[in-house]
Design a protein around this nucleic acid. Structure first.
Lengths: 349, 349
DNA sequence: GTAACCTTCTGTATCGATATAGAAGCCGTT
DNA sequence: AACGGCTTCTATATCGATACAGAAGGTTAC
């Protein structure tokens, strides 16, 4: 009894019209007489026709109505990172509003074959990938419009993301203005899960240092500490290294390149009996939720991840439409909370 | 200079082979001589051919390698719910492992047209939708394999989700065993964002009550409080209503149908000077992260959302493969923490 | 009465790939 | 020399839709 799966032709024959008329019944109701349309839809219902096949329509139309998002190599890590989820949220939100779907593409497959080759998309958004990630090359090969968020920076590809250097410079100026003269930066080495290069951290470190050096701070008074990875515990451990230095040479202000690290530093400071901000000012980067509720609340650089996701999606859609685009600047703002203050014994301001 | 976009035929002509050979060069390297393959790939590179078009291939093959996920009507809400994100994480994880992509489908579009009609997928997973949601009907119309997570329960459609009734019964037994005899249930009315029907909460309420009534507790000693929505503040407000009752008739144990509500109840109890669990035992449902760190830590029903996502995806893939499936049972476990205890003045156990 | 015009519907050409069966060439065996 | 068995490659027939140009029929304008 199970007849073959009906197609436009099947329905057309049953309704006594041409195939084109059936197609129009679904896609351009204004192009045919209402009662013809009803007759067609009734025939379709009778045959159990599920409507025009999306894949066939996409092939014919030359567009899929879908934007692909490439996260890290292994998808599982992506959802564990609240920042990435927020970006994804922004992307999904914009696409949803414009009637597009979002395809999540696992960048790498176990056997080395990338699924990117098979992704039915009109454009790709690359989120926080390392420049050397094979997925980046695979994405370029696809010859669809590309947008990157955060990393990597690719020639001829619009990128959404904060100006890390400039934002870090703002942190440095803030600390200089407070009167600090001996500094530390906590950064992290390559995160091996993500590949060889994490330029955004370098930019933050360099931006921070450049302002200090320009202001006449000797390089020897800007200690760079490298945490083992981007985690709270690594930040904690990095902080304990500070305490090794003799009191008089110890930095009075510290900039951690991520809030996670900064929170770890706060942990370490508390454990070492170092009072924040009286004995050590601490600033972070990202303004994650926990930065508001830490003890003390963290001075940090805020940037709108949701908005970055939205912008990335909007850019992708405009590229699909064939428009020339220039990525909008991503605003950052220094959120001054209680973890930074004037150096010295008093909390005076 | 910009020549037309190359296709298999273009490359075939350039390499002096048939179209089929080019296709094989990409998809079945073992079916042609290595040096022919190299010649083909070189020609492709020279012409800037990006590889076989995924949409055309999908049409011919009759499968897309993609599973669609339908969240709530308006995508934006989905990512704000940590539970849904966890489910999504599980789904993505399973799909990624099996080389499938995940399509996020906005269920409803502003103009009433559902994007579901255009989604190129082999199966659909419906997550936490109301039974009356138009997306549910649209999904059925697509005639692809369906799986639901949590809600709704549809005939002939496998559903992944905890046995809410049974789990709630476990909570009731736990509280009975502790010696409680006067109870309250905090539930919530329909969440208007999601549609008319939220049966899972009813199941939790009914399961809880049924055990109590069977044990001889008079119906008048099981107060049902209806919070205005599923939020911490609504739980808080619900708790204050409890305090209105005269001491002697006040329940000594309370079950909130979600952890969010339960945490709100804890807030309310603290504000009202009610000591938990000495004067009021509180139990929740879901075991969200915050349940571990609340004051006091919350007794609650744990169920593995990540695992449910994985199961749903696995089920979908098996349906695509044409297998008969029966959804696995979703385990729940009562996690007893410090928010429940024996009734009365002493904390004794 | 006829030209001009709508509305409604149809026929043809295509979108870019893959499955399948079979042809062509090469090898070793008998 | 004939034959089976490999490997390598090709020709044909689809997959299921949509765009476009134009045909058929009815209306209006003058």
């Amino acid at each position: 009894m199970a007849t073959e799966r009906p197609t436009l032709d099947t329905v057309a024959a049953a309704a006594g019209v041409s195939r084109m008329t059936v197609s129009n019944a679904y896609n351009r109701p204004d192009q045919l007489a209402p009662k013809t349309r009803q007759r067609v839809l009734e025939a379709a219902a009778r045959l159990g026709y599920p409507g025009p096949d999306p894949t066939a329509a996409s092939l014919r139309l030359g567009r899929t109505g879908t934007v692909g998002v490439v996260l890290t190599e292994r998808l599982p890590y992506a959802f564990a990172d609240p920042g990435l989820v927020t970006i994804l949220h922004g992307i999904a939100s914009e696409l949803s509003d414009t009637g597009n779907a979002l395809l999540l593409v696992p960048a790498q497959l176990a056997d080395g074959q990338s699924l990117l080759r098979h992704a039915m998309v009109d454009a790709l958004i690359l989120c926080s990938l390392a420049a050397g990630d094979p997925a980046v090359a695979a994405a370029r090969d696809r010859q669809v419009p590309l947008v990157t968020v955060g990393n990597p920076k690719l020639p001829k590809v619009p990128r959404i993301g904060p100006d890390n250097r400039r934002a870090a410079q703002g942190v440095a100026r803030h600390l200089l203005d407070l009167g600090h003269r001996r500094f530390a930066v906590v950064t992290t080495v390559t995160d091996d899960r993500r590949g060889p290069s994490r330029p955004l951290f370098h930019e933050r470190v360099d931006g921070f240092r450049s302002v200090l050096l320009d202001a006449g701070v000797p390089a020897s008074d800007v200690t760079v500490i490298c945490a083992s990875d981007n985690s709270r515990s690594a930040g904690h451990e990095a902080a304990t290294r500070l305490l090794d230095a003799p009191r008089s040479r110890r930095p009075t202000a510290l900039f951690a390149v991520t809030d996670i690290l900064a929170l770890g530093v706060l942990d370490g400071a508390k454990e070492g009996g170092l009072e924040v901000p009286r004995e050590l000012s601490v600033a972070g980067f990202d303004d994650i939720a926990a930065a508001q509720t830490s003890q003390p609340p963290l001075t940090t650089v805020a940037h709108d991840l949701f908005g970055q996701g939205r912008s990335a999606a909007r850019l992708a859609l405009r590229l699909i439409a064939g428009e020339q685009v220039r990525p909008p600047r991503t605003d950052t703002s220094l959120v001054v909370r209680e973890s930074t203050g004037r150096p010295g014994r008093s909390v005076a301001r």
